[in-house]
Design a protein around this nucleic acid. Structure first.
Lengths: 215, 215
DNA sequence: GCCACTATATATAATTA
DNA sequence: TTAATTATATATAGTGG
């Protein structure tokens, strides 16, 4: 929304953080006002600057006062007082085999037939509960199979990687040998040690960006 | 901000009011989140639909103190004991972050507390439907992230395998060279080049230590 | 009622005064 | 500095499925 896109993280420069705070704060409050007017709902926005100042918006037109809104808020969050925002994402399609897809497709079709059939009227709650269970089972099986296949891929690839690395090391040794021997008899060991040290370092030289996500 | 400018007054058409409510509500909450992140401040947004549902955002790092601050603004403290779970805003989020996962953990905890609480008797069907949605959302999110991580791992490993194979080929060539044409004047250069190439590749040849955690 | 889309309105990051 | 300005990013009103 500006000359360029900014990263969604704390703005480190104090000055521009302050400017952004001022602009976005009023933007937020403006939007809150618009929402409350357009949709005729109660909205409260509270912003506490880190110097302790409070900026707020509470729509006053309705019967709700701030205290009432806050009361509602506290009632609503009596259990823990925390906000939680769940992001819904469409599940990515996995690399599933043809057989599976076919099976799933058939399953879906059979369900469709089931739901469109003339005997639909005659079905009872019990039938739908059974159908639900069947579908849930199919889903669980599909997911399990998917996970299994992915883990297998990962395992195979890791194994492959290990072997390639070993081979690689041997080749490096050989190269070091071939290069090192002509000079003195110690060169070989030095070369090998050096390579191994480099190798040992390698495993630590990586930013593990995935780790935090697992916490 | 749309195909045309709209008057700043209550939208009379019920349907489009509802649509606008949904869109602007998530927009408002998104902006609140951005403000809290970019400027490192505490922000709370509370939106009550006129059917009594609460949509909220409170930046989690400060929620407990925020709750306390909120208490200061409460002038009446009559308790009516009605319990309800805060509705969870469902919105798409691009970057998965620690905060999100943390939110999942918090969600689980709050659910546990909720289900063990003394007010369990007072909950209505509506509350459980909402809870179900929240949990389903959290589950989808978790699954999606899992799948994403696994796919990333597979991608990385494949890439790595490719690079290792290339390196391997080069090393083999070199060994052949060194054996086939020993003591040629090119030896030194080859050695240096090789080491540099290895070095350049190093950044890709990383063991993914996070893998076991996915199981 | 919920998507995706897209034209347009609005918000705002960088820049200038 | 704070206040305008401007170029760009983002939000969203209307639309169709």
């Amino acid at each position: 929304m500006g000359r360029r896109k900014i990263e969604m993280k704390r703005i480190e420069d104090k000055s521009s953080r302050q400017v952004t705070f001022s602009k976005r704060r009023s933007g937020l409050i403006k939007k809150a006002r618009e929402l409350s007017i357009l949709c005729d709902v109660d909205v409260a926005v509270l912003v506490f600057s880190n110097r302790g100042r409070l900026y707020e918006f509470v729509n006053s037109s309705s019967s709700s006062s701030l205290s009432q809104i806050l009361k509602r808020y506290q009632d609503s969050t009596a259990a823990d007082g925390k906000a939680s925002i769940a992001a819904v994402e469409t599940e990515q399609s996995s690399p599933s085999s043809c057989a599976e897809v076919q099976t799933c497709g058939e399953l879906v079709k059979s369900v469709e037939r089931y739901l469109e059939g003339p005997e639909l009227e005659n079905l009872r709650l019990e039938d739908f509960m059974r159908l639900e269970r069947q579908l849930a089972d199919a889903l669980v099986q599909t997911r399990t199979r998917k996970t299994q296949l992915m883990l297998e891929s990962i395992g195979t690839l890791s194994e492959q990687e290990k072997l390639l690395k070993q081979e690689n090391e041997q080749l490096k040794d050989e190269v070091a040998n071939l290069i090192g021997i002509p000079k003195s008899r110690n060169h070989k060991d030095l070369g090998v040690n050096n390579l191994m040290e480099v190798d040992a370092d390698r495993q630590y030289s990586q930013p593990l960006r995935t780790l935090p996500l697992l916490r």
